[in-house]
Amino acid sequence: MSDNPAYQDILVAIHADNPSHTAWYGFGSFFRESNSFSDIDVLAVCADVERASAIRQEMATVCNDWPVHLLIMTESEVEETNFIQSQQCILLLKPNGKR
């Protein structure tokens, strides 16, 4: 996984997003090290829907170069759906930029 060029580009893109208040996670078959993945599932968690729109724009290049399934949720949506636990999301980057 770590030597996959798509994954490397995603990491560069989400680090470039700093210093935002966004938390970044990976989930789905790519992060379960499955060979049969067709896309790379990435979750961004932000404070509100306005910030969500900005994240979509900031990630446009990497999402155009690779099959990135970018799911953007507000903190309240993550809490409501229990998404991080139910999908066994893997933390890629904390909101303050610390791993």
Binding site: A52, L71, M73, T74, E77
Partner: peptide, 12 residues
């Protein structure tokens, strides 16, 4: 076709 349909999906 989302599993969790979010506000951002609708706006996008």
């Amino acid at each position: 076709n989302e599993y969790e349909l979010t506000a951002e999906h609708v706006r996008t």
